[in-house]
Every structure is written in structure tokens, then in C-alpha cells.
Simulated scan of single mutants.
Amino acid sequence: MRASRTIKRSRPVPETLLSVENLSTVFALRGRSLFSKSVELKAVSDVSFNLDEGETLGIVGESGCGKSTLGRSILRLIEPTGGRIVWQGRNLAELSNGEMRKARRDLSIIFQDPVASLDPRMNVGQIIAEPLKVAEPSLGRRDRRRRVETVMEEVGLAPEMINRYPHEFSGGQAQRIGIARAIVTEPKLIVCDEPVSALDVSIQAQIVNLLKALKERMGLTLIFISHDLSVVRLVSDRILVLYLGRIVEIGPRREVFQNPGHPYTKALLSAAPIPDPAIARSREKTALKGDPPSPINPPSGCAFRTRCPIARDVCAEELPPLAEVGAAHRAACLFSQEVRSEPALQG
């Protein structure tokens, strides 16, 4: 394998690898009958953020909020309908299919369901080697096998397992295969799409620790998608909170956990488990009421207002901007200072 990259921590300003600018992804859904009009489902709306080299950005929110769609749109596994995705100075949306295939050497993904993401007709060696055939077609069979065996050891799999098939592995082992497939081309960015949500708690910790170790060893940059704040808290440098496809809060992990600026974030933190029983008993609970509204017909103004404990009439009239509430910390709430008056959780 090529020598692992190391992050030059002495640089005063980290290099920005990825800039997402006003990204939107809309799905056109067919009507129920032959003559009814199609409707639009706005899965991701006007999302913007930067990602620096070596950083881990955690993306959190309830199921259906657009987390996975955002991650896959960034990689163009789902084609976005608006905005720009600038990777190392190049707009990915403007790349041809051939140029995009070359770019994918540096862009990878780990899927949520470790078993369903593996082709049952292929053995481990074939599964892990598949990205190499696209990224490095000139690589010989012997060198390709050597690379596969090396990454298997990197993720904690014995090279002797190379000829086994997915059904012979546990869920945790299957996810290690998925991680090996994701890192075999030595990418710079990996989108981790809920990589531990389908695993037992004890196995989750092993996979999280593996990802953290690989990040340090290979100099990886990660987008870590999850609905589990206790997991995101362990791996992320910054937190991005999505609600109905829009960013409602983004900021440094400690800032967001200690003093959230949006009532939705505060409610998510209130539901997150805390290992200290004393703190868990004493903290204020902020329960979310009702279900998220339909993204096909979202509420006017602030989409969270129908569930918000501090919503007022003005919330139905204005779409709150993503405004500064702290150092590198922004929230989309007209009453952020009221939300931040009481710290939510130790970060």
C-alpha cells in the first residue's frame, strides 16, 4: 500500500477539502392515480458547510430528516438538484463520468447495513478488491490480492478469510469487510452512513474504536451520520443537526453539547443517555411532542414550530436564518438566546 498520509498539525489553518454550498436534493414522487400530478419531496434543502482535512463532522437527526440523502448527494450516489459540491477546488457536479470515477478514489462510503451492502455471490477478496479495479485498473492480480490482505489485517480480519462469503460472518465482521472495502483505495474522505446502528452495543464500541484508529493512522476525514448522539459524541469534532432536510444547528462538539442554540438539538440531547446517574437524574428533560411533519408539505416558517416548546406566532411567518450564537457556532432559531440560557449536557 502507499505510505499512509499524516496530518500536518503545525499548520495554522487546516486545508478545506470539501465545501458544500446551498445543496438541495428533491425527489419527484408520482401521484396516486394516472392523472394526478407528481409532488416534490424536499429531502435536503439549502445545506452549506465546509469540511477541513482530518476533521470528523457528525450529522445527526431523527429518521427521515435527510441525513443519508445528504451524505449520498455529496458523493453523487444520488444526484443533487441544486447547489455546489466543491472537492479540493473542483465542483463535483461538473465532472464527467470518467472524471468522477477518478475522483472516487479519494471518496468512499461505509453503509448502514453491513450484510445487505455485501454481494452474497462474491467472496471477501472480491468484495474488497472491487473498488481497486476501478481506481487502479493497471494493478496486477497478485498486487491486488496483497493490498486486500493488508487492509483485512488493518480492520482486524485474518487474511485466511479472503475466500469466505458474507453469510459466514457475523454483523460486526461484515461491517469490518465494508470498512476494508472503503479504505482499500486509501481515500481522503469517508462518509460513514450510520455504520453502527445495526450492530449490538458491544460491537458498536469496537467499530467506533476501529474507525477512530484508522482516522489517526491514515489521516482520514470523516462525515459520520447517526441518530445516536452518544456515538456521535465519541467521534466528532463538529456537529451538524438536520431537521426536515435543513441545518438547524452546526458548531464544535463541545459547544453544541454543552449549550445548544436550537430547541430541537436540546430535545435530542435530553434523550441521549448519560453514563453518570447523578447528572442523568438532575438534568432537565425536553420531550419532543408529535411526529415530524411531512417533507412533502412542510409547515410555513420554521419547520420545527409544530413541535417546539417555545414556538410563537412569528415562527410561522419567518424562516429563521442560521445565525451566530457562539464561536464558530450557528443555530436557526429566532430565540436561540432563550434556548442557551440553560446548559443541556456536559460535552
Rank of each mutant, 00 (worst) to 15 (best):
V184Y: 08
I239K: 00
G61C: 00
L139S: 08
G61S: 01
S230N: 08
V241H: 01
H329D: 02
N123W: 12
R246E: 11
E154H: 12
R253K: 15
H167F: 15
L23H: 09
E284A: 11
L269C: 05
I247M: 10
D193P: 14
A182R: 03
F304L: 01
G219K: 02
E15I: 05
I247E: 06
A116C: 07
K102F: 06
W87R: 02
G31D: 11
E55I: 05
P299C: 00
G178Q: 06
I239S: 01
S336Y: 04
S270I: 11
A116H: 06
E62P: 05
P187Q: 11
A198S: 13
G89N: 06
L269W: 03
Q173K: 08
P273N: 10
G251M: 10
A28G: 06
E62R: 05
S63D: 10
S108A: 15
W87H: 06
R312K: 13
E79P: 05
E149V: 11
V155L: 11
V155E: 06
Q126G: 02
P131H: 11
R144Q: 15
I74K: 00
A311D: 01
G66R: 04
V208P: 03
A174W: 02
V124P: 07
Q126H: 05
D106W: 05
Q175I: 13
R145Y: 09
V325C: 05
I109P: 00
Q112I: 03
L41I: 06
N297G: 00
G54I: 07
P252F: 04
N22S: 15
L139Y: 10
L118E: 06
V232G: 00
R11Y: 07
N123R: 14
V47S: 00
M152F: 13
K8W: 01
R238E: 02
P321D: 02
T81R: 13
G82D: 13
L77P: 11
E255S: 15
E153Y: 03
S24L: 11
K188P: 12
V155K: 05
F35I: 15
W87P: 03
I7F: 09
S170K: 06
I85V: 14
R330S: 03
I162Q: 12
C192R: 06
R142Y: 11
Q88D: 14
A182H: 05
D46W: 04
A174C: 15
L288Q: 01
L34W: 13
L229G: 05
V208K: 04
E154Y: 13
R72S: 10
E318A: 01
L132K: 10
E338N: 09
L189Q: 13
A332I: 14
V44G: 09
A272W: 01
S24G: 14
S197P: 08
D193Q: 12
D52R: 10
G82A: 15
R253W: 07
P343L: 07
L157Q: 07
I274P: 03
R340E: 11
P14A: 11
E342L: 12
V256M: 02
S38F: 13
F49S: 02
A280T: 09
T25H: 08
G58H: 00
D237E: 04
H262I: 09
K188S: 13
P321N: 03
R281I: 11
A331N: 04
G83W: 12
R76D: 04
A267M: 05
I85L: 05
G89Y: 09
